[in-house]
Nucleic acid binder design. Structure first.
Lengths: 226, 226
DNA sequence: CCATCAATCAAGAGAGTTCTTGAATGAACG
DNA sequence: CGTTCATTCAAGAACTCTCTTGATTGATGG
């Protein structure tokens, strides 16, 4: 009974790999990665996610179901709404691993980064430990440039909340003399890039944080929710 | 000039996410995950990979190009052959992260594991540190059940090579009195599951190693290549 | 219990993926 | 320099994915 072992093994292996492949395919769409980034800020309703991701509600619902089908997110009925959240932290680790491979390997990322970011800011991001040091030394202001509702759901303690859309007209609220460290939803969140570019145009000393709030939380650092 | 910032940001973000999504989609096929597992054992030609994965050469070539297009593998012409290898270790980390999410989340994995493995062995796998302790204490034999060519390309020092297909007729080569720890290509490689099942049917004390050779190597542990 | 609102379902057009088959490269070697 | 062998390319049939539209479900609140 040697043959059965082989045929059995092959199909079992492919069944397993097919299950893993289903998960990978669920990640294989830009809108779904976007939805995951928004969910990484905190749980949200379908309608809220659709708005933030720029999708119709029906379309967002279908994408969320694709993510739910493979266990990346869970949805819970809460009154009239269905609130989705990321199932567990290892999902964030998976997306982070995907991002790391993408940063190094893909030409597309290099092109995008080159075209859009390199001219503006790009390289010098501040690490979490460095930021904490700068803050305790009184050298830096932390600036959260996400929309106000996301700030309200959780932010880095002591951070100043000025959504990017309002930054230009609220520049006077940013303390002068200190370096500004801007952060946003994640390592590639464009809001932080934009904020740094805008602040530098105004002659301020500004850098972006190398990760966003989900990475900060995942690193076990304190999150404030006032 | 506030509006342009937004439209710019949105498209830049989606471009980036589309690049990451391309990588995820390249992982989103059972055969390609299989090819990656074989490549994790060591570099291989298209024909060798096609044979091991049970694909036609043309089909294997197309899958490998899909992996190469997103930078997961690189191909190098070497005489008549093109030899592929995994680009860098972070690709292994990505696949490992995918597997971890799959192990916990997906029903399909639970079903497959339940159907195929749980009855046979399943739970008690030996960790790397535990194995090293058992070997220094003289309590265990390490058994490599992969095909001979993969053993030749690198294996755990001191391991005995008996491919699964030959295990039944070469049982007498396995030392008695010691516990047998079988390993294979990776955490879900069915060869090791099968080997443990077969050994236990023969009344031997057998467990599987919790990872395969790529995980062993990735952990910085020594690999022998005689 | 009927109106309302959030979310999901269903169906279909258009685009992309997968595998097969047979032809085309391109290096090696007599 | 023509043959051989490994690999890649090209085209097409079958299937899957994505987004839109309009209908349906399910909870809430007058």
């Amino acid at each position: 009974m040697v043959k059965p072992v082989w045929s059995f093994s092959l199909s079992a292996k492919l069944d397993l790999f097919a299950a893993f492949a289903d998960i990978a395919r669920a990640l294989g769409n830009a809108h779904r990665l976007d939805l995951l980034e928004h969910l990484a800020q905190g749980e949200k309703s379908v309608e809220a996610l659709a708005g933030k991701a720029g999708l119709t509600v029906a379309n967002a619902s279908q994408h969320l179901q694709a993510l739910r089908r493979v266990g990346l997110v869970v949805g819970e009925r809460r009154g009239k709404q269905v609130v989705y959240r990321i199932t567990e932290d290892d999902v964030l680790d998976l997306v982070a691993a995907l991002r790391r491979v993408g940063e190094r390997h893909t030409n597309a990322v290099k092109v995008v980064v080159g075209d859009y970011f390199q001219a503006r800011d790009s390289l010098d991001a501040v690490g979490f430990a460095a930021l904490e040091q700068m803050v305790t030394d009184g050298l830096a202001t932390i600036l959260d440039v996400r929309p106000a509702d996301e700030f309200a759901d959780g932010h880095i303690p002591g951070a100043l909340s000025i959504p990017l859309t309002e930054l230009k007209v609220r520049l006077d609220e940013v303390p002068t003399g200190l370096e500004v460290v801007a952060y946003c939803r994640g390592p590639w969140c464009v809001l932080a890039f934009e904020a740094v570019a805008l602040l530098r145009e105004q002659g301020r000393l500004a850098k972006r944080l190398e990760g966003g709030l989900p990475e900060w939380r995942r690193a076990g650092l304190p999150v404030a929710t006032p």
